[in-house]
């Protein structure tokens, strides 16, 4: 009986340790797997050719990713520009001004916003944002737009990254010790002056991390963007032009990719890039957050 318990304990320990360690190794598996699969195309075309050529003709064997990369950057940039001010002001309001009752009310709503699937955001974009850009916004600037545009995708994406940015920056703001605010208030500062000069300064690294996390979220988001970005493989000239971001490219062509030579390899290379870029962003922001956490403790 006693030895049975001991054996059980030993087996369980090993198994748990094994699972824990392997979960940390998933990232390496993913990078290796995608790299092996994308090697065929790397052996035919050079990396710089793939990155900086803008001619995309898979049937002719030309794989220039530039339009997609530029499209992704435009859309992500637009989303971040829209989302960051709104989210920061909201987070500051919730953390510094709002009574705790409102803060408690807001939490489940943010959860809900985070839980809504991206297809739903996509549909909403189709129903609300795309027509608005086509009928109201584009005529104001005197240009024609189908509405399927970088701006539409940017708006939808901005909303999708609200929860991440608000959640993380709220946490960071709340970790600023109350005594520090008191010290500033006691010197006769107004609340906003205290926020501006003390709280935000102290919380800055964490807030940067929050923004970077939001950025990387937006960078890889697929379905919603796919539905409203227009998907034209050309380098866009303005935010009212359509664009074709990388994730949409991958998702859209899964059907054909096994029938055209090198196509699957090209798409998996694109996934590898997404993975690596997002990995870098995530690692940076997580490192900042870990340091913030430690400085608080």
């Amino acid at each position: 009986m006693r030895s049975f318990r001991k054996i059980k304990e030993a087996v369980a320990t090993r198994l748990m340790a094994f699972l824990t360690v392997s979960s940390s190794l998933i990232v390496f598996f993913m990078i290796t797997g995608l790299y092996v699969r994308s090697r065929p195309i790397l052996s035919v075309h050079s990396l710089s050719e793939l990155l900086f050529s803008s001619s995309w003709h898979p049937l002719r064997g030309e794989f220039g990713f530039l339009p997609f990369i530029v499209g992704t950057l435009w859309i992500t940039g637009t989303a971040v520009v829209i989302a960051v001010p709104l989210c920061l002001f909201t987070a500051i309001y919730l953390s510094e001004y709002a009574p705790s009752r409102i803060r408690a009310l807001f939490a489940p709503l943010i959860d809900l916003l985070a839980g809504i699937p991206s297809v739903i955001y996509g549909i909403w974009g189709l129903l609300a944002v795309v027509p608005m850009i086509k009928n109201q916004l584009a005529p104001v600037f005197g240009v024609f737009s189908t509405g399927y545009s970088i701006l539409a995708a940017g708006i939808v994406l901005a909303i999708m990254i609200f929860p991440v940015i608000i959640h993380v920056s709220l946490e960071v703001l709340q970790s600023v010790p109350g005594e520090m605010r008191e010290a500033s208030l006691a010197l006769g500062a107004t609340s906003w002056q205290t926020v501006k000069t003390v709280v935000l300064r102290r919380a800055r690294p964490g807030i940067i991390a929050a923004v970077v996390l939001g950025f990387s979220r937006a960078f890889g988001e697929t379905m919603a963007v796919l539905m409203v970005a227009g998907n034209v493989a050309r380098i866009p000239g303005s935010v009212l032009d359509p664009a074709y971001p990388l994730p949409a490219l991958i998702a859209n062509n899964y059907g054909e990719m096994l029938s055209v030579p090198l196509y699957d390899s090209a798409l998996l290379l694109a996934s590898l890039w997404l993975l690596v870029v997002i990995l870098l962003f995530n690692v940076c922001s997580r490192l900042i957050l870990v340091r913030v956490e430690r400085s608080v403790l």
Partner: peptide
């Protein structure tokens, strides 16, 4: 803010501003 300016506060643990 004027009232608070009239008084300096020293707390239990020092909290230098960042």
């Amino acid at each position: 803010t004027r009232i608070r300016k009239k008084m300096g506060l020293l707390s239990q643990r020092p909290y230098p501003l960042p």
